[in-house]
Amino acid sequence: MEHRDDIGAKLGMWVFIFTEILLFGGLFLVYAIMRSSYSTEFHQAAHHLNAFIGTINTVVLLISSATVAMSITAVQKGNNKLAVILLVITLLCAAAFMINKYFEWGHKIHIGLYPGSDLMLTLSHGQVMFFSLYYFMTGLHMFHLVVGGIILTIVLIKVQNGTINEGRYVLLENGGLYWHLVDLIWIFLFPLLYLIT
């Protein structure tokens, strides 16, 4: 007899999400400390970030979160075809986010603004801390986005071939939970990095 426990699986996923929250929590703690020591310099440095790109990425991520949530509804209603379409939209959003980030980072690196660069060493301490945090936090977030993308791709294939279906979709739910976590973190990163000018 096969043992199956969907609630247990979901509980496991949630506990894993807690560890992820605290992983980023360590970084937000560093942010809080640095921000309290260098608040004006953080304001100045934030001017170098493009709030417009940040906003677009926020919108893109929110949409992708909604489509994942909807894909669960679709599978629950037995409409795997729609679920596939919704997951593809999610992945496209993820790709759009990455492309945006590529240009954003690429521009900064091009003008020599990255940890350890000569330009960075001419900046004030607070600004160095801001950019270091910016790269570390968005970098780690991006890593999670890529992992989430891979998970959702696997889920997508399983929805496509029917392994995930009306009667058994906990994998989709867990993949979705992970994706929402990525969104959740961005919800805090966006105002703390882009909107403090």
Partner: peptide, 10 residues
């Protein structure tokens, strides 16, 4: 926003 995401999406 986080509360909404947790409550509904998650």
């Amino acid at each position: 926003k986080a509360y909404i995401v947790l409550t509904y999406f998650m």
